[in-house]
Simulated scan of single mutants.
Amino acid sequence: MNNGPLTGVRVVDLTHALAGPYGTMLLADLGADVVKVEAPAGDMSRRAGPYPPEDTTHVFGGYFQSINRGKRSIVLDLKTPEGISTFRELVRDADVLVENFSVGVMERLGLAYESLAIDNPRLVYAAVRGFGDPRSGESPYAAWPAFDLVVQAMAGIMGITGTEDGRPIKVGPGVGDIFPGTLLALGVVSALYEARGSGRGQFVDIAMYDAVLSLCERIVYQHSYTGAVPVPEGNKHPLLSPFDVLPATDGWVTIAAPNDSRWRRLCELIGRPDLGADPDFATNVRRVERRDDVFDALAAWTSCRSKAEILQCLGGSVPVGAVRDAAEIMADPHVASRDMLIELEHPGATNSVVVAGQPLKFSRT
């Protein structure tokens, strides 16, 4: 029986693709009763795959499964009076409505927040769009469609992520969707908390652009304080050293020890106490100025050792981690002990499939 902290909260989910469904997945994982409303054609992510080898039905694939688990589903055609009527009945009894249509779509359907709030004054209406809703401030890009890649480019991620020659590279995970989706869930929960006292809902507005800009907060203060325009620097950090990705005999490891005492401890462990005592490397500021020398000293030590040997030596003393692939992560005992792999049934497949688990842990619910 579900006893999550949001048990009893009813959510009508009109979202599709990734940002919105990720946010409502978080609400479902936390115990909310989420009813996913799909048009007759279905959410676009149903057709994205991948599918288990024996699945010939292709009802949905891994993309859809990963971010829509734990939700109930209904098909409504909001272009028909019957669909609109049923939808209004759902919303009348709901605590939350979430949608990620383009600006103006819900208004054209006669389903604007102001209209729905007349029937349900306590309704928390949340929207996540590429550039936000005009209610909170009208962006010049308000009518532009957006995807993760576009937002990574426009809001700063790709401006500081890339090779040292300046070629931009997108971040692998869809952070341009997932981080806005996470803030969406936080916004919904915050509005629900406020409504407990006021008895009134409100409009919650998340722009993907805004969310990613907040994620890139370092570039804002760095430019404001120094006048510098941050650029891609490969795996180096402009303000911290060591903060590096280093070669091992069987792959790569990361070492981050910008704290001065951690730096000295690192130097002891790799057999370079002379470097730890050198005043030219005594502070993080000085090490940043000489970060190529810091990198070379560490790489000389890591490059003749395996990842396991490096972790055995440094683990628990300085921040260190191996660069791992999905297979290595899924075999990691940490992941098992933290319940970060969830087995689910999949239509058309005899074996269970695995999706990423829920990182929010609670002691009682």
Rank of each mutant, 00 (worst) to 15 (best):
D95M: 10
A28T: 05
V96C: 12
P81G: 09
S66H: 09
E107Y: 02
R88T: 08
D93G: 10
A48Q: 10
F64A: 01
L90D: 09
P40E: 00
K79D: 15
E107I: 00
E99G: 11
G110N: 05
P81N: 07
D55A: 08
A32T: 00
D77Y: 14
N100W: 08
L26W: 07
M44P: 14
K79V: 05
D77T: 12
T80P: 14
F87V: 06
E38T: 00
E99N: 10
T24H: 04
H58W: 05
V103A: 11
L109Q: 06
L78R: 14
G20E: 00
G83H: 10
L18G: 00
L27T: 04
P50C: 03
L78I: 10
G104C: 04
G20N: 00
H58I: 00
I67Q: 15
G31A: 06
D29L: 09
I84R: 15
L30D: 04
G31E: 06
V35E: 02
E82F: 02
N100C: 09
T24E: 07
L90M: 14
L111A: 03
F101G: 11
R108G: 02
G23W: 07
V98D: 10
Y63P: 01
V75D: 09
E99L: 09
E107S: 08
T24V: 04
Y22P: 01
L78E: 13
P81Y: 09
L76K: 13
P21S: 03
T24Y: 06
E99D: 13
E82N: 10
S66N: 12
L30E: 09
M106Q: 03
H58R: 15
E38Q: 01
T56P: 04
G31L: 06
L109D: 02
A48M: 13
V103H: 10
F87K: 07
L76H: 12
T24F: 03
F64K: 07
D95N: 15
S73K: 11
Y22A: 03
M25I: 01
I74R: 15
K79G: 15
K71Q: 13
L27E: 05
R88I: 03
P53D: 12
S45F: 06
S85V: 05
D33P: 03
V91W: 12
V96I: 11
E89S: 15
T80Y: 11
G20Q: 01
G70A: 14
D43C: 01
D43A: 02
K36R: 06
D95G: 10
K79C: 07
G62N: 06
M106A: 03
L78K: 12
R92P: 07
K71S: 13
S102W: 01
D43S: 02
D33M: 01
S66E: 14
V91M: 13
V91Q: 11
